[in-house]
Computed example of a mutant assay.
Amino acid sequence: MDDTISDRQLRILKHLSQIGTASRKELTAVIPSVSRITLIRDLNSLQARGLAIAAGKGPATVYSITPSAKRLKLYDPAAYLLEDPDSRQVQFTAFIAEHVKRLESAWDKNKIGNIKRLAADYQLKRGSDVASRELERFVIEFSWKSSKIEGNTYSLLDTEQLIKGSVEAAGHSREEAVMILNHKTAFDYIWQHNHSYRQLSRMSIEEIHQLLTQNLGISRGLRQSPVGIVGTAYVPPASQAEISSHLDQVIKLVNDCQEPAIKSLVALVGISYLQPFADGNKRTARLASNALLVAHDYPPLSYRTVDENAFKGALILFYEQGVTDYIVEVFLQQFEFSAKNYNL
């Protein structure tokens, strides 16, 4: 049997991965150019290869993907980011709170068990005489990479000289230096007040945003006008009433989670997704996410080894396709790196 998955079959699997189950009629609407016979042939092929299963009979038959199909890389996040947003098969263009809630159910027992083992190992090695130097190294690497994700052009060495020696790099704007130094200020603050962040509140999120955006000409408080996100067809909520309501939902979802790593992920994605501020949203999301980790004696994420396009692509896949797997994978990879490479 030919194991090649056609583009059409891949679209079927992607659609099923997003919505759970679908009938043949629903799948025909997603792929309008396909005939009924061809669709049935594709579905039979996917079932024969253990990638899809059917339930029910006749017109009531619905299809879903199997665990084997879920392990397939249906998307390449970095490649997805580079696609023209207008040419993508976008499923969602508006904020859907239920998608944020699904981030919690994306964790199985193996993922949670691995997180807990990594956190326990990290906690055992804390408190050594090198901890202060390790904290400084983490702050430099986090401030550099988080700023770089936002387009900052400072190198890691430039960032070290700025933070340790107050030396601004030649050929760079003052705003780039301020962005990096604001990261240091914000992380120092959450580190010193770590127990204040065991639960998230609107005040704590706005506090982090204020620290990150000071002296950058960015307005404080919830935005009062619409914003767009470069590179995606997704449009965040426009009215302040909507933003306020959805932010309360995100905060409740974070605080209802029992596992600190899941709290952190929901904050990271939920705040990035909602875009509650005029600017500085993803920076605020990364700091709030780290504040929750630090408050529970978990390793904060530096993102030092993350591929920026893969990270951005994973977020956009969540926005546009409702797919959680890729951003969860990025988070887990960065958590493991931090747990093994820092001793704060």
Rank of each mutant, 00 (worst) to 15 (best):
Q258A: 15
I40Y: 15
I205N: 03
D2I: 13
A78Y: 03
N44Y: 03
Y298P: 04
N255R: 08
E320C: 05
F335T: 09
D279E: 12
E83L: 07
P260Q: 10
W107A: 11
R24V: 10
K148H: 14
N309M: 05
N281F: 07
R49A: 10
D297T: 07
K184T: 04
Q249Y: 14
H195W: 11
I163N: 02
L274W: 03
L46N: 00
G231Q: 09
L212N: 04
I40F: 12
L344A: 11
S143P: 06
E26T: 14
F277H: 10
R286M: 06
W144Y: 12
F95C: 11
D188A: 08
I40D: 15
A48R: 13
T159K: 05
V328N: 06
I163Q: 02
F138P: 02
K145H: 03
S45P: 05
A261S: 09
R304C: 05
S132E: 14
P236T: 08
A186T: 02
R126D: 07
S245A: 15
N114Q: 11
I96D: 13
D42P: 05
G231R: 05
G270H: 09
Q240I: 13
L39I: 12
V227T: 09
F335Q: 01
Y319E: 01
L27V: 04
P77E: 05
K340S: 10
V328D: 06
T21Q: 12
S45V: 06
R88A: 02
K148L: 13
R71N: 11
V250P: 08
Y154L: 10
K312A: 05
R8A: 01
A241Q: 14
R174E: 12
A94N: 13
C257I: 02
P260H: 05
F187N: 03
G270M: 09
D121A: 08
A170Y: 09
Q249N: 15
N110I: 12
T93V: 14
A120E: 13
K25R: 14
V167M: 14
L10K: 11
E207G: 06
S272M: 09
A310I: 06
Q334W: 00
V328I: 05
V130S: 13
Q91A: 15
I19Y: 12
I218F: 10
A177F: 03
V306N: 04
I327A: 04
V328C: 03
L51G: 01
N290C: 04
K282F: 01
H172W: 06
